[in-house]
């Protein structure tokens, strides 16, 4: 970074020819400095984000074992295979169910917790920290630990259910329960993020409306639907998109808890399929095709987000 002290035009010419500078509107010394400041970051992003993005699209038209240098161009075959494969239905179903359940679960619970901990309750400070804490823990660590929490033989959940006189579901043998387990673990870990943002929004809203309604004798649930929720609309929109995009891309929890199973694809989502096809089944071209489809979905969601946000403003 010491090179920053050496701009392309040395010396102090800036003081001698200010009129030229102003007319052109460009100070090349400053431009040189700007280049030095942004180029390292820009190069990293170009090489490790944008290059692979384009390269991935190219690779999706090939048949390719990632370990071998030989690639065979096969046109749209990977895409055709994905759209016609019988397992795609299950994988899309898993992705959609997991994503929607994760978004709905963390949004509803997060908002409920924010409203609860916005009240003047003794001990709310430490509880606020507690709710947020799991968000800073590694997803892989939570996944590993919760495997035992959900263990149908000796885990925590089966023990609690047994005390209530219930049998534990087979979280690892039944695809539906496995998906439930993964979703629950994800929500448990990430609800703190939704909570913190809703709490900040609640603290920043105009409570005088709420006050007036309260004095008018409007029942609480009506105040919630008519006043509180509309005031949180912007936050709700922002959160639903953010949580949607991040839950769409979950890998760590699935990888450590179920490895995509039971029955091969019981909890396989699209992200996990990208990994599985590319690195386990050695079909990198096919994996790249799935990744490209995912990227298009992310792009679509983002475009919708920007459109709707522009409308709001």
């Amino acid at each position: 970074m010491t090179t920053i002290a050496r701009p392309p035009v040395p010396g102090e010419p800036a003081q001698q020819d200010p009129p030229v500078r102003r007319r052109q509107g460009t100070d090349w010394r400053q431009v040189g400095l700007a280049a030095l400041l942004i180029v390292p970051n820009l190069v990293l992003l170009l090489v490790f984000t944008y290059r692979p993005l384009l390269d991935n699209i190219r690779l999706s038209f090939y048949h390719w074992n990632i370990a071998s240098p030989r690639k065979t161009f096969i046109g749209l075959d990977n895409y055709i295979e994905w759209f016609t494969s019988p397992s795609t239905g299950t994988i899309v179903f898993n992705t959609v169910v997991f994503t929607i359940a994760a978004v709905a679960g963390s949004m509803i619970i997060g908002l409920a917790l924010a409203m609860l901990l916005d009240q003047k309750l003794i001990g709310r400070g430490p509880v606020r920290s507690m709710v947020f804490a799991p968000y800073v823990i590694s997803g892989a660590a939570i996944g590993v630990a919760f495997q035992f929490v959900f263990d149908p033989g000796y885990g925590l959940i089966q023990d609690i259910l047994a005390r209530l006189g219930l049998d534990s579901p087979h979280f690892y043998q039944n695809a539906g329960w496995a998906l439930f387990m993964i979703t629950t673990t994800y929500v448990w870990k990430n609800v703190g993020y939704v909570f913190v943002i809703y709490l900040a929004a609640l603290q920043g809203r105009r409570e005088d409306l709420d006050e007036a309604a309260e004095i008018d004798g409007t029942p609480a649930w009506r105040r919630f639907w008519r006043i509180t929720l509309p005031q949180l609309r912007g936050t709700t929109f922002f959160l639903s998109i953010t949580v949607l995009l991040s839950s769409f891309q979950v890998f760590d929890i699935i990888n450590v808890m179920t490895g995509g199973g039971p029955f091969e694809i019981g909890t396989t989502t699209m992200v996990f399929q990208v990994y599985q096809e590319t690195f386990v089944n050695s079909r990198a071209g096919y994996g790249a095709a799935v990744a490209t489809i995912m990227f298009l979905v992310v792009l679509l969601i983002t475009v919708i987000q920007v459109r709707m946000q522009d409308k709001e403003q």
Partner: peptide
């Protein structure tokens, strides 16, 4: 600092947020 293409380059930097990891891992 004012420099040519500033807004374009800034958009290029923050748009990287939109590129999901799983599309970059294979090539990387």
């Amino acid at each position: 600092i004012k420099f040519p293409l500033r807004n374009f380059l800034f958009v290029l930097v923050i748009a990287a947020l939109m590129v999901p990891n799983q599309i970059t891992i294979i090539s990387n």
